[in-house]
Design a protein around this nucleic acid. Structure first.
Length: 291
DNA sequence: CTAGCTTCCTGATAGC
DNA sequence: TGCTATCAGGAAGCTA
């Protein structure tokens, strides 16, 4: 039995694009056409813009039209065109609960809806943030303006990736985590995408060949779409686990499997650190090429 | 401009 | 048992 190298600290959380999309599809139908009648900010740290007082004032009375997602950002769109942006970062959880539902530890923000339900924000590490942006007000304050292409964007081609990155000495894994190139990939799906392409996480962008760029341009949308598909959960199960256990962890091929056999060749997967992030890969299927 | 370091935060775990 | 140190991670904010 191979040694288990990873520790899985907080692995039930850490939302990336597929998980954020799951949250949106679960939450949106429960809040659409609901009016926010009051807001309780239990920890002002999670409100990034504007001040907590202004934030609460602007939210109250608004009716939610729809929910959107861009990269790992969620947003609530209101009837008046205002928007509430949210980034879950590492450990943020968004729930719609009956108002008498037991309040979880680390609940930082509660919005009371007009149908007796509440939207609750829970975040163990408090890295997540909310931004309230008025209709017509620039969204630059949130950071969404800096995001690169969505993985599903048809403009995400080998040519796009190569033109943006081929001159850079950065490791390909760091490129995948750069939200200004492609939005929504985190540490887990970066490892899965690299395994799918057979590229070593430390391979420099400047060393990649045209076939590599083509493989990446295909694997990025494919792996993210697979993540969205496999993360499906019912609203009941989502609430029962308090929005924490809808991840496809058992299905991941490399992430968190350091020391375990590669699903393609059986050799033990390795775990290294790339750009300060733990990375799992197969040393046989993802050989590092020298020039 | 980029690279590299630090910060934020808590809880699990290791070591004494 | 109980203490302290270490580590995980997304993204911003620094410095050089």
């Amino acid at each position: 039995m191979a040694e288990q190298v990873n520790t899985f600290k907080g692995n039930d959380i850490m939302p990336e694009l597929p998980e954020v999309e799951t949250v949106r599809t679960i939450i949106a139908p429960q809040v659409t056409n609901r009016r926010i009648i009051s807001v309780n900010v239990l920890n002002g740290k999670v409100v990034a813009h504007p001040t907590v007082d202004e934030f609460c004032k602007r939210l109250c009375g608004n009716t939610i039209c729809s929910m959107d997602r861009r990269g790992k950002f969620l947003s609530f769109i209101f009837e008046n065109g205002d928007r509430l942006f949210l980034h879950l970062r590492m450990t943020g959880q968004l729930l719609v609960t009956p108002q008498d539902f037991p309040q979880a530890k680390h609940t930082h923000l509660v919005m009371q809806l007009d149908d007796g339900h509440q939207i609750r924000y829970i975040d163990l590490r408090r890295f997540g943030r909310f931004w309230y942006v008025r209709n017509g007000e620039p969204t630059a304050v949130t950071g969404v303006d800096k995001l690169g292409l969505e993985p599903s964007d048809k403009s995400l081609t080998a040519k796009y990736l190569k033109s943006k990155l081929a001159c850079r000495a950065k490791a390909v894994k760091e490129m995948l985590l750069d939200q200004t190139i492609v939005a929504g990939i985190g540490n887990i799906y970066a490892d899965e995408i690299l395994f799918a392409t057979g590229i070593h996480p430390e391979q420099k962008c400047s060393e990649l060949r045209d076939t590599d760029w083509r493989k990446l341009a295909k694997a990025i949308p494919d792996v993210i779409a697979w993540g969205i598909e496999t993360n499906k959960i019912t609203p009941e199960d989502y609430l029962a686990c308090e929005g924490a256990s809808y991840r496809n962890t058992p299905l991941l091929k490399v992430y968190g499997r350091g020391g375990q056999p590669c699903l393609k060749c059986g050799r033990p997967l390795e775990r290294i650190t790339v750009g300060g992030r733990s990375s799992c890969f197969c040393p046989a299927c993802q050989r590092k090429r020298s020039l």
